[in-house]
Amino acid sequence: MFELLGVSPQALFGQLLLGLINGAFYAMLSLGLAVIFGMLNVVNFAHGALYMTGAFVAWLLLEFLGVGYWPALLIAPLAVAVLGIAIERTMLRWLYKLDHLYGLLLTFGLALIVEGLFRNEYGSSGQPYQIPETLQGGQNLGFMFLPNYRAWVVVASLAICLGTWYTIERTKLGAYLRAATENPALVQAFGINVPRLLTFTYAGGVALAALAGVMAAPMVNVSPQMGSSLIIIVFAVVVIGGMGSILGSIVTGFGLGVIEGLTKVFFPEASNTVIFVIMAIVLLIKPAGLFGRAA
């Protein structure tokens, strides 16, 4: 069969795995973007920078304090969540009633500042981050070699995505979030502290980005521009899935990662653009996105 397709199984499964890995990051990042947009009406351009910040916090913890990967998975998202709270409380809060454009400009500016600070301090060449000892090595599956760390990333990110979906669609807190997305004034008039809920949402969304950053650190060089190169694709994923749809973000994230991986096998020339071609087609046929509700 592989001969018929003209590709080797190693190449096919290798790219499939890479696609799943990329998809995992698309999903985790677009999930945060979708939740933040739904609740705050803010297109969070700082998302990539905060993903990068998460990776850098992990690297700094290891480099200067000797704190390893596993604690960093908890500490870095918490640190970025605190940063998120500060951003929401001091800046974003004043923009909710204005046009989306203001939130977009503010967060874009923040992204440039955060990236600039890290570039100034640590240069742009990137810092290596070791795979934690327990996840080094891999499994030979016969048709391909599966590195343990990559398997862990796929499984862990799936669990994180499903956990986020469950929290939003099946819990009381999630019901508050969904209701406040529709009609914040009424939810507040029921006695729920909506301003605090918004702060919490932003902090949660960016913590998710930071968590993705820590998970990415051992696979890529931790560099100031690691977020900005990813975030453009993630925005395309959000547009394709539909702004504000949780399940849409997850399915679209993983799906597009896989499609991108397969394109690398069968038509490598298009692999950098395939997501944007899909975005254009989806926008023409279903402008609200595959899973979006028409406004």
Partner: peptide, 16 residues
């Protein structure tokens, strides 16, 4: 002010 993204039971139980 019924919420479209909540079912009837969730709407009923929403106000704390």
């Amino acid at each position: 002010g019924i919420f479209a993204s909540l079912n009837v039971a969730e709407n009923l139980l929403l106000p704390p």
